[in-house]
């Protein structure tokens, strides 16, 4: 029996697809916004689409803002979930959860936003990308980005190179949507689910 995966549900976007991929890979899924359930989880997916400030407010209202950064089990933040794990976001000028000492920036004016569509993953360096080729296509949709830094484990280029994925210890973050990125995306989620700290 594969271990249960907790997907954090806090009113921020489409959880259905993430859940569908995890279930297709044979893992039982629990959707929860209960801090006790999230704290007791053995593996956590932290998705999110929407606005950073209001998403942070929803996390605080549920007491999840203290729980998530304290997790010691594998955590995968997707899109806004990854951005919220940073220290601060320009979107609504809000503090984040502070897992990563990074600031989320807005894509500069003069570039079409949101950055929406398929773009290439480069400079892959993490077990998250086992079996994934350099230049693999992934689906992005975002108007804010995490600049390149030493915690970057995948890069992508739009207005400039930015972090397609980041990692610190047990925390992984993807700016792209693996649950919407075809076979490659499904493999990345499988890699996360099989990763042992």
């Amino acid at each position: 029996m594969k271990e249960e995966v907790v997907i954090i549900k806090y009113g921020a976007g489409n959880l259905f697809s993430a859940r569908a991929v995890v279930e297709r890979l044979g893992y039982p899924v629990v959707l929860s916004d209960d801090p006790a359930v999230v704290s007791a989880a053995t593996r956590v997916i932290f998705p999110g689409v929407g606005q950073a400030r209001s998403a942070m407010e929803r996390l605080r209202a549920r007491g999840l803002d203290d729980v998530i950064p304290a997790l010691r089990v594998p955590v995968l933040g997707i899109c806004l979930g990854m951005q919220l794990m940073c220290a601060r976001s320009e979107e609504g000028d809000t503090p984040g959860l502070g897992v990563f000492p990074l600031e989320v920036k807005r894509v500069p004016g003069g570039y079409r936003t949101p950055h929406v569509g398929w773009n290439r993953l480069e400079q892959l360096s993490s077990p998250l990308f086992d079996g994934i080729d350099e230049g693999t296509w992934a689906y992005f949709v975002h108007s804010y980005f995490v600049p390149a830094s030493p915690v970057q484990i995948a890069s992508c280029t739009y207005h400039a190179p930015f972090s397609a994925a980041i990692r610190r210890d047990n925390f992984f973050g993807c700016q792209f949507h693996p649950e919407k990125s075809g076979d490659a995306g499904e493999r990345i989620i499988r890699n996360f689910l099989e990763w042992k700290p």
């Binding site: 976007g13 489409n14 959880l15 259905f16 697809s17 569908a20 991929v21 297709r24 689906y139 949709v141 949507h177 649950e179 919407k180 990125s181 075809g182 076979d183 995306g185 499904e186």
Partner: peptide, 28 residues
């Protein structure tokens, strides 16, 4: 469930409730 690429749904959407229901069902 059957696809792994993003999708859009249109037709008769007039409220936040309509959108919420669609996003909950897996639309992007």
């Amino acid at each position: 469930r059957a696809t792994r690429v993003p999708f859009t749904v249109g037709g008769g959407i007039t409220s936040e409730r309509d959108v919420e229901a669609l996003l909950e069902s897996g639309a992007d």
